[in-house]
Amino acid sequence: MHKKEIVTAGKKLTEAKKALIMIHGRGATAEDIIGLSSYLQVKDFALLAPQATNYTWYPYSFLMPPRQNEPWLSSALALLGDVVSDVNKAGIASENIYFLGFSQGACLTLEFVTRNARRWGGVTAFTGGLIGDKIYPENYKGDFQGTPVFLGTSDPDPHVPVERVYATTNILKSMNAAVTEKIYPGMGHTIDQDEIETANTLIFQ
């Protein structure tokens, strides 16, 4: 199960008006994803990056039936809930909490915010989609109230089929998220400069 190990950077929670929760990918570290913040317009944000136990949030592909990724998936979602609660308790409202994830971290990010839809500050998912062998709409509730969401991905991507990104966009839009989706032909499993610039323009402006 995931322990609560949070790497922080940027402003202190008690001094910041906004917080960005950054979720690393499989095999990566919290420090890796925090390093991405130097390219983002987040100098006034508190930055928080949880570390997955054994560097992975759940053991199998996000396209497996969710029960096969338990109990790790539920543990990871609960950990994100704890982080949000800590940020709220520090005096930062949910509408000023932002999320960013890459790959497995993007899938986890999208799964968390869609299970807990409300007016968030903004969501950036670099190469990810909602989790499961299919979409489970019964898992998703709430109203994003116009939360800006950016989904960027390669077509093709070795881990995330573009069809799942499209399906994710449709669910988010049906829950009143303001979604911008960008598909990059042949980009590969990485984060591209245009994605960074788009996130800065749409989410962190």
Rank of each mutant, 00 (worst) to 15 (best):
Y55S: 12
E111C: 02
V7P: 08
L172M: 15
I196G: 06
P161A: 07
K89E: 15
G152T: 10
K89L: 14
K43C: 10
V162K: 05
S74K: 03
L151K: 00
E195S: 09
L73Q: 02
G81K: 01
P158H: 12
G128Q: 03
K4V: 10
A19D: 04
I33A: 07
P148F: 11
A9S: 11
L202E: 13
P65Y: 13
Q205V: 10
L110E: 07
V87P: 03
P158S: 06
M22Q: 13
R115G: 00
F204M: 04
S174C: 09
L47A: 01
S74A: 04
T14Q: 12
E31D: 15
G122A: 08
K141Y: 15
P66I: 11
S174V: 07
S74H: 03
L79H: 05
P148R: 02
E197G: 05
L108F: 12
C107S: 09
Y184P: 02
N69L: 06
G25V: 02
C107Y: 15
V149E: 10
Q41V: 09
L36R: 05
T198R: 06
S37V: 02
V165Q: 04
E15W: 08
P65F: 13
Y55I: 09
K89A: 14
K11N: 11
A46C: 08
R115P: 04
G121F: 06
T53Q: 14
K182P: 07
K43W: 15
V84I: 10
I131Q: 00
E95M: 11
E195K: 03
L63E: 15
L47W: 08
R164K: 12
A28C: 14
E111S: 01
F99K: 01
I23S: 01
T53V: 09
L110C: 02
T168V: 01
I6H: 05
M22F: 03
Q104L: 09
V149I: 12
D155N: 13
F99Q: 00
I23W: 02
G35S: 13
D155H: 13
I191L: 09
L110Q: 01
S154E: 07
Y184E: 12
T53R: 12
A177W: 15
K141L: 06
I171M: 11
V113N: 00
T180Y: 08
P71M: 07
Q193P: 14
P161L: 06
F62R: 03
G27F: 12
T114E: 10
T8N: 11
L77K: 02
D157Y: 11
K17R: 14
F144G: 00
T190N: 13
G81L: 06
G186K: 14
S154R: 00
W72N: 09
F112M: 00
D86T: 01
P156S: 05
Y58N: 01
A167V: 05
Y60E: 12
K43N: 14
Y39E: 15
V7T: 14
D32P: 09
G27P: 03
N170P: 07
V42W: 07
P66Q: 13
E111M: 06
I21F: 10
K141D: 08
S75T: 03
N139C: 07
S103H: 07
A49N: 07
Y58D: 04
P137K: 02
S37L: 12
